[in-house]
């Protein structure tokens, strides 16, 4: 392939500059500030700070409440990813079987992704409200079967469902696009070779979908760690008894409610490292099993 080069480097620099500026102002600068704060005692109302070294990290890592937050975050991440990807894949497989009007359907399916997390949280808060919502009817039949206000895992299930629902739309679009890019004749050839619908999915469609699958996996896991604040904040406030106190929510509570900026900064540094690590692991170990045609 021929590549074009800029004769003058300053033109290239000028073209890249706006993007670099945005990344610097909204990523590198805050990140470096967070790292700096995590290594100091930052005063809530300004006025200088003292060097703390790794004090905050040591404190966090020996705090059982922090580990509990990491644990529920992992549960939430696994839950939303599996549920969100699984349902999206099933829906995409159905739509790929050429249902009438799937184009309109496809457009309709993307909308949930455009809804802000707090709005989703509010909607699901109503749906899952044990005394006023849809689930109240269920409670009327089986008394007390659903109570996210008191039962920890009910609350977790609730935010997992809300989080998954938000991602299903996005995942579905990518899965469907991936399925549609598999040549029709491959499906026909496997039909001639004697495989039925399920066998075809397993042997032909899913293996050829692995690049999409991998991409969606990385996006979903990252998303579930960093973009879950709105749902927790509107639905559970981290409760009951910290059962849904996800890492990203704990950062907010400790920092902006507890005014402990330095600990919150240290937590966000840990969260960032964790997401980077998870992404690295995925590329290192899962991508090897991806078939790029």
């Amino acid at each position: 392939m021929r590549r074009a080069y800029f004769k003058n480097n300053w033109i290239a620099a000028a073209l890249v500059l706006p993007q670099l500026l945005i990344i610097f102002v909204f990523f590198y600068w805050p990140t470096s500030q967070a790292v700096f704060w995590s290594l100091t005692f930052e005063q809530p109302w300004g006025g200088g700070n003292d060097w703390a070294g790794l004090h905050h990290f040591r404190e966090l890592l020996s705090d059982s409440l922090y580990w509990q937050s990491v644990r529920v975050s992992l549960v939430y991440a696994a839950g939303t990813t599996v549920l969100g990807m699984g349902l999206a894949l099933i829906l995409a497989l159905f739509v790929d079987r050429q249902l009438r009007g799937y184009r309109q359907y496809r457009v309709g399916m993307i909308w949930p992704y455009a809804v802000a997390a707090p709005a989703i949280g509010l909607a699901f808060r109503y749906i899952f409200n044990p005394t006023a919502g849809v689930m109240a009817y269920v409670n009327q039949v089986w008394d007390g079967i659903w109570d996210p206000i008191l039962t920890g895992w009910h609350a977790m299930a609730m935010i997992v469902i809300a989080g998954a629902w938000k991602n299903i739309a996005y995942n579905f679009i990518f899965f469907l696009a991936g399925l549609q890019s598999i040549p029709r004749s491959l499906i026909e050839a496997s039909a001639m070779d004697g495989s039925g619908v399920m066998r075809r999915m397993r042997d032909i469609q899913l293996p050829l979908l692995t690049p999409t699958f991998f991409f969606i996996l990385v996006i979903n896991i990252t998303d579930s760690f960093t973009d879950s604040f709105g749902i927790v904040d509107t639905m559970t406030n981290g409760g009951p008894a910290r059962a849904t106190n996800l890492m990203v929510y704990k950062i907010y509570v400790d920092g902006f409610e507890g005014q402990n900026y330095s600990s919150a900064a240290a937590q966000s540094v840990i969260l960032m490292v964790l997401v980077i690590l998870l992404t690295f692991v995925q590329f290192r170990y899962i991508e090897r099993r991806v078939h790029y045609s």
């Binding site: 004749s185 026909e188 496997s190 293996p207 045609s293």
Partner: peptide, 10 residues
């Protein structure tokens, strides 16, 4: 036998 062969690429 298909026009574009329709071989399973994986």
């Amino acid at each position: 036998v298909f026009q574009n062969y329709a071989l399973y690429p994986h």
